[in-house]
Structures are given as C-alpha cells and as structure tokens.
Design a protein around this nucleic acid. Structure first.
Lengths: 137, 137
DNA sequence: GCTTATATCGTTATATTATAACGTGAATGG
DNA sequence: CCATTCACGTTATAATATAACGATATAAGC
C-alpha cells in the first residue's frame, strides 16, 4: 500500500519526478513550456504531460504556482509545512524568487476572511520588485 | 495643458473610456477578450485596442489586474488612494470580487521587504475561496 | 483469479491570453 | 514649421492552457 498520508512524501510517477527535478534543478521559476523544453530528451512531447504533473505536484504541496508570472517553483520548505501560507518576492531584474512565510500578515488576512464569512481556499501573496543584489547603488 | 497630476482624474481617450465603462458596468471582473466582445458594437476589432487601454487604466490607478484570474476590475475606491495596497477576495462560486485594503498586513509585507533590502514595486494579494453568500449552509 | 473501478499516460487538436511589428494621424512642445 | 510623442488600427504571431479521445496500468472487491 502506498496511500498518501498527510506529511509524508508521496511516491511520484516518472513524469512527476521529471518535472519536479527540472524545477529543483532550476535557479528560478520555470514556465510549463520551459519545463517541456527541458524534458524533450526524456520523452516529453506535449504540454499536457507537464501540466498534468504540475497539477499533482501543486496538490502535493511540492510546487508553487506564481500567478503573476504564470510560472512554477519548487517549494523550498523542508517538509512543505507552510505551503498554504507561503509568499514570494520576485525580482524583476534577475528573475530570482525568494519564498518566505509572512505568518503575521497571513493571520491578518485570515482574520479578515473570517469576519467577512469568506471561506478561504487559497491565498496568493506575491511581491514584485528588485532584490537587494540587483538594486545596489 | 492637460498634464496629469497625482490625485486628479486623467482625461480618458475614447477607447480608454469605453473599456473603463465596460468594467464599471460589470458586476464582476472581465477578461480582455470579454471586454473586446462587449465593445464590438463600439468599433473594437482587435485585442490590442483593449490591452492598450487597460495598460493605461492600470497606470492611472483606475483598474486592477487580478493575476490569479488574468482578468481586470474597475477600482472601487473613490479617488483610488489605496491603489497600491489593495487586496481582493475572489469567490470561486459566483465570481464576484471584493476589494479591500488590509493596511496592517501590507505594512508587515513592506517591513519584510525593507529588512530584506527588496525594493517593492507592486504587491499582489488575492484570496480565493467562497464568499459568505455562496457558502451559506 | 477475475473484474470493476481509478489513475496515469500519450496524442491531437483547439481554446485562451498576450504581444510584435508596421504604418497612420492627431496633439504637443520647441 | 518641424520634431517628437502618443494614441490608434490592423495583421500576424507568440505564449499559456485545456478538451477530448483512447490506451495502459494499478488497485480494490469479490
């Protein structure tokens, strides 16, 4: 039995492992089509192979989708415990993405949702700007 | 002279006014192509006419882009003072979007950016879920 | 074991979202 | 007046994402 409990690593299919590998091997986020190009030599031929694997990896909490980039990054949190409260700082110069967990800010947003009666399914927090390395004087 | 100072309403071109009208006349967010369809009778023929107007309207602070929907909404803030700190709650059932201004949460995010040396250009905060009306028992 | 359900996969085609590149004409500023 | 800028219209194309089909494999129930 390979049932997927919370908090253990799911067994990845071959395609899922390939896509996850492409993402962990990349310094920055990748679009689905960039992943497809990386994996042509591994037999990938069509976008759906990438999108299907990405869907699962996002479900598993191993990959995040960056809405403002239409791109994907591997989660850098060991164990991915804070998957639902992750935020991202995206440098528009070098393209690098820093994942962080703004717990207080997320709590405030959750609080707003609660008082509004809004049932929160997913929270997207993405900062766009220029990282410290790229904005040196 | 029709220079655009901060805090006054810019003079809109015909296309910009039409696109803004389509958005203010809509209950919920619209995609660029939905706007195009609304404006066919007004002479719109091509996506660029919509996208160019949207770019300006976003610059002016009159329209927000919802990154997680690839769609646009008219800003509901009179005067649009809080344009840069707006957040959105998007109901996945009825499609309605509530704009709000989570000042404290935004301050915390700004604080994180400051300590990281990250020069913040734009902050995206979007909540996905189910609004109170749609999640009644 | 057999069989029924469930999940993944490969493929083709197509839908949806967005921009490049070109030329035109109107308004602005010197 | 001339140069510059800006908005516009149009055609073409790029980039992102999903529908629909059938095949294969894996798991579950009996």
């Amino acid at each position: 039995m390979s049932h997927h409990h919370e908090n253990d690593q799911p067994t990845l299919t071959k395609n899922q492992a390939l896509v996850f590998g492409a993402l962990t091997g990349s310094e920055g986020p990748l679009t689905a089509y960039a992943i497809l190009d990386h994996l042509r030599d591994d037999g990938f031929r069509a976008p759906l192979q990438v999108y299907r694997a990405l869907d699962k990896l996002v479900d598993f909490g191993m990959v995040h989708r960056l809405e403002s980039l239409n791109a994907f990054v591997a989660c850098r949190h060991p164990g991915c415990t804070a998957h639902d409260t992750a935020a991202f700082a995206i440098c528009e110069d070098c393209g690098l993405v820093k994942e962080f967990a703004p717990d207080e800010a997320m709590s405030l947003l959750k609080g707003w949702a609660k008082t509004e009666g809004f049932k929160l399914a997913k929270t997207t927090v993405e900062l766009r700007g220029h990282c410290s390395r790229c904005s040196v004087n």
